[in-house]
Design a protein around this nucleic acid. Structure first.
Lengths: 335, 335
DNA sequence: TTGTAGGCGTTATCAA
DNA sequence: TTGATAACGCCTACAA
């Protein structure tokens, strides 16, 4: 890589003159500027990023710590983060915790040595179950901003971007009851130990309470065979006339199983799931989804974090990104 | 952040002594080592990564440039890359080209200023269509190693990790003909302009040639409604007794459409797609898939790149990661 | 056993 | 208008 020093030698002028010329300083004559720029161009000079970072003590890099990236929700969030970061001339260093506390800790620790200006993260399942938060608080104490999205730790004071988990499920449940006349709504869950799962279940139960209906919850967390579990439940409980899946997979499975059992969708049973970009393509009839604006969540996370990086201690804020109910053929009153 | 200088001041010893003590140099007395380490511990000292990078001219960071991360194939590759990188104490900076040439160019350019030691990339769709490769060659000319995976540019000499696209489709086609007695095999494609798409199609046509069968190819590239296109084709061509989808979505759609048309799977028609981790869950009957070892591809990519970084110019090599045919209920002779 | 000095590549201050 | 010098934080050859 070409350096300032090399340029300065070749041109027989000082390093500092070269530097100023390249930065178009008014102190430098047009003729030298021209000479410098031409040679720089020719040798494809680029300022060494690492040296700049050392000098300015800013990395323009965000550490992004995700539980996984094969879950389409996190993939789409990452997409949003990457785009927003790029648009603001930031890089992202991505670490995957694989839902484990250890890897999450390690990543935070390793990157908090000056590698990044701040973090965007969703906590690992294990950490959320065990309620461990010290490693995150440590980072904050060392004055590195952390933004948490989706899965969030209430006890930690920092910027947060969350989804309207409670509200969206509450509303869809209410919709199923009021608009579609459903009375036996099953909730299928494989994430009930996550903060988001708890909120979604709460939205469901609260709505049922309002109408004096009784909850039916099928927890699949350790189920080896999701298809079979759902199939069995449905065949044994023929009164079920609606299913809400609170993740992005089991809703599709529910559609397939309902069809297999000869249930007519949506006449006989309505099915709603959580979904993202291409979820709808994957079932026939198309599944109704609570569409989480994952991309927006990513964008918003970057926005908030950069605000914090560029402003002196304003108060921590929490932004809720509303999701959108997309009713489809698998819902009775399809739009 | 605590620095060596701060420690040295507090302990009234020189910076270099502190540095040596922390690096457990034999030059330093045990008593000083102890003093230094205790204070370092107490103040949570961590060597500044940026300074180390500047000093050693090594970043221990890999630039990863992906077309997208919402495609589960690339998500899984990223997973493999991240894990392998972490295991070797490397970070990854992730950029998404969004399948555009511009973003890909920009990312390569921005990171080639000393930010990374090397690149792992799959080229954007646009670049592959337009056959533009100069930006990649430029990076290689500047002595930064590039490893290409999956979508690959033949004209560029560099390490490559690819899938056995031709072979796997050839074999599955042969299997459908020989073992399942299929004669009217439809290939559904939405990636025929990619290097991998071309190879898969070639595998299909070559196999058909061998048996003197005629190819049926349904190109969906610009199809607004994939479901409808497949539905229409199937209803007009009732002789079709097998479908091979060369991507990870349209196979699922094909299953749903075949069912809708009353076709019996697998008695009446066999359906095979490309897939990854959870693809099988999404259809009933479970789709047969050519399972690409995306995670392995990521791991292998890191392995090869690190080999190149740590060894003097050995020759460029290409590794083929074989995929695995997983026959399922949607195939006649299910295992 | 400890300390001094120089340098990685850049930028900023001050002097010429 | 240009150049010398110092500094960011770390490491290391060499001197003490």
């Amino acid at each position: 890589m070409t350096t300032l020093k090399e340029l300065s030698k070749l041109l027989n002028i000082s390093v500092s003159t070269v530097s100023k010329a390249l930065n178009d300083s008014h102190e430098i004559s047009d003729t030298t500027k021209k000479r410098v720029n031409e040679l720089a161009e020719k040798l494809n000079y680029k300022p060494n990023r690492i040296a700049q970072q050392l000098k300015t003590n800013k990395t323009r890099t965000i550490g992004v710590i995700l539980p996984t990236v094969t879950n389409p929700f996190f993939a789409e969030v990452l997409h949003g983060i990457e785009m927003a970061a790029t648009n603001n001339d930031y890089d992202i260093i991505v670490c995957l915790s694989n839902e484990t506390l250890n890897k999450e800790k390690r990543s935070l620790e390793l990157l908090s040595n000056g590698s990044v200006d701040g973090f965007i993260m969703a906590v690992a399942r294990e950490g959320q179950v065990k309620q461990e938060i010290n490693h995150i608080q440590t980072i904050l104490d060392s004055k590195i901003p952390v933004l948490m999205f989706d899965r969030v730790v209430d006890e930690i004071k920092c910027d947060k971007v969350i989804v309207d988990d409670f509200q969206s499920v509450y509303e869809v449940t209410e919709h199923l009851i009021e608009k579609e006349g459903r009375k036996h709504i099953l909730l299928v869950s494989n994430i009930e130990e996550l903060s988001v799962g708890k909120l979604r279940i709460k939205g469901y139960t609260k709505a049922l309470e309002k109408y004096n209906l009784k909850p039916n919850i099928l927890k699949l967390d350790n189920a080896l065979d999701v298809e079979k579990s759902i199939h069995t439940y449905l065949s044994k409980n023929s009164e079920i006339d609606a299913i809400i899946s609170i993740d992005h997979i089991t809703g599709i499975v529910a559609i397939n199983m309902a069809k297999k059992l000869g249930r007519e969708i949506p006449n006989n049973i309505s099915i709603v799931g959580f979904g993202y970009e291409h979820t709808e393509l994957l079932s026939s009839p198309k599944i109704s989804i609570i569409h989480q604006k994952a991309y927006d969540i990513g964008e918003m996370s970057v926005k908030l974090l950069l605000e914090r990086l560029n402003t002196e201690n304003h108060k921590a804020q929490t932004v809720i990104v509303p999701s959108e109910l997309k009713l489809s053929e698998s819902s009775k009153n399809s739009l």
